[in-house]
Simulated scan of single mutants.
Amino acid sequence: MFQIIGIVLLFGLVFGSFLMSGGSLAPIIHAAPHELMAIGGAGVASFLIANSMTVVKGAGAGMGKVFAGPKWKASDYRDLLSLLFLLTKTMKSKGVIALESHIENPHDSTIFSRYPKIMKDHFAIDFICDTLRMMTMNLEDPHQVEDAMEKQLEKHHHEALAPAHAIQSLADALPALGIVAAVLGIIKTMGAISEPPEVLGEMIGSALVGTFLGVFLAYGLVAPFATRINQIVEEESAFYKIIQAVLVAHLHGNAAQISVEIGRGNVPSGSQPSFLELEEALSAIPNEA
């Protein structure tokens, strides 16, 4: 919602101030199609040249996140803490062997299947299962496990940020591409130097529209989109940090309740459940779970 409001304000205030100062939108409207074709076409082409298909697809998904926001909501953090509570409680009461069937086939697990949204996140499920699998192989040194988890998180975080970096690179290039479009317009104008001043003025004005659009798109739209995607990736990464915090706390010998309480402290403030809310969520888990 805020992003839509921001876009409306951006166009309304920029072009509104231009109109209030006596400007006319007619030259901009006339020049915009071919200037946007040059700038936008060159931008898309350079974007495709510079990035892999994975990054390109990630950038498209990231643009959707700009308006949708982070995928993890407050209820999802409660579900994650509840899932980790069940797993750590099972390990405490029945041993790691009791978890083998769950971590080898999480899609058939009665524990994991209780939380379908988390099940759709392949990295979250693999991250949990791989860590628990290390524990079943007697890798119980908390520092070794934490280090292994940290490396996985760093790799995932680096890959998740690649689309934001690619879009930021596009934003950095757009002003220069706007100058390219403007230079082409000037070349066209110089070829018609014998025309009367009013014709030359219109042609120069059209050329300058290219510079304006390059800067306007770069700093008004594309760069803010990249910044917002970066913010969302950073916030979503907290979801996986919770997994690390809870499982490492468990390896340090803490009770399941204490481990998830440590994990609760890593939840972003806007989505963090209170102590009582978490207690209610854990109490609502059926005994057979």
Rank of each mutant, 00 (worst) to 15 (best):
residue 39 I to Y: 11
residue 61 A to C: 01
residue 87 L to H: 07
residue 41 G to W: 14
residue 67 F to A: 03
residue 42 A to V: 03
residue 25 L to W: 07
residue 47 F to M: 07
residue 19 L to N: 03
residue 48 L to Y: 06
residue 21 S to R: 14
residue 42 A to R: 05
residue 46 S to C: 00
residue 74 A to P: 04
residue 51 N to D: 15
residue 68 A to C: 04
residue 19 L to G: 01
residue 29 I to K: 14
residue 73 K to W: 03
residue 44 V to M: 07
residue 31 A to T: 06
residue 84 L to N: 03
residue 52 S to G: 11
residue 66 V to Y: 10
residue 49 I to N: 01
residue 80 L to A: 04
residue 39 I to A: 07
residue 60 G to I: 03
residue 31 A to V: 08
residue 64 G to Y: 03
residue 82 S to K: 01
residue 24 S to N: 15
residue 54 T to R: 13
residue 15 F to N: 10
residue 28 I to C: 03
residue 21 S to F: 05
residue 46 S to H: 02
residue 81 L to I: 04
residue 49 I to R: 06
residue 22 G to V: 01
residue 55 V to H: 12
residue 75 S to T: 08
residue 27 P to S: 05
residue 68 A to G: 04
residue 24 S to Q: 09
residue 76 D to A: 10
residue 17 S to R: 06
residue 55 V to Y: 08
residue 65 K to R: 06
residue 18 F to V: 09
residue 51 N to R: 05
residue 65 K to V: 01
residue 34 H to G: 03
residue 82 S to W: 00
residue 49 I to M: 10
residue 62 G to S: 08
residue 56 V to S: 09
residue 63 M to Y: 03
residue 24 S to Y: 05
residue 39 I to E: 10
residue 12 G to V: 05
residue 36 L to A: 08
residue 34 H to F: 10
residue 23 G to F: 05
residue 64 G to P: 02
residue 93 S to K: 14
residue 33 P to D: 00
residue 43 G to E: 08
residue 39 I to T: 11
residue 42 A to P: 10
residue 90 T to R: 15
residue 15 F to K: 14
residue 75 S to A: 15
residue 61 A to W: 02
residue 12 G to I: 10
residue 82 S to A: 12
residue 59 A to R: 11
residue 18 F to L: 14
residue 15 F to V: 04
residue 80 L to C: 04
residue 42 A to T: 12
residue 89 K to D: 10
residue 25 L to P: 15
residue 81 L to Q: 15
residue 20 M to Y: 12
residue 23 G to K: 07
residue 74 A to L: 02
residue 51 N to L: 09
residue 59 A to L: 08
residue 18 F to R: 10
residue 35 E to L: 05
residue 90 T to F: 00
residue 63 M to V: 14
residue 23 G to M: 04
residue 91 M to D: 15
residue 86 L to E: 08
residue 72 W to M: 09
residue 50 A to I: 02
residue 24 S to W: 01
residue 73 K to D: 11
residue 57 K to F: 12
residue 43 G to Y: 04
residue 27 P to R: 02
residue 76 D to Y: 09
residue 59 A to C: 15
residue 93 S to M: 11
residue 34 H to N: 13
residue 16 G to E: 05
residue 61 A to N: 15
residue 84 L to F: 02
residue 66 V to E: 06
residue 27 P to G: 00
residue 75 S to N: 07
residue 15 F to I: 06
residue 25 L to M: 11
residue 23 G to R: 05
residue 16 G to K: 07
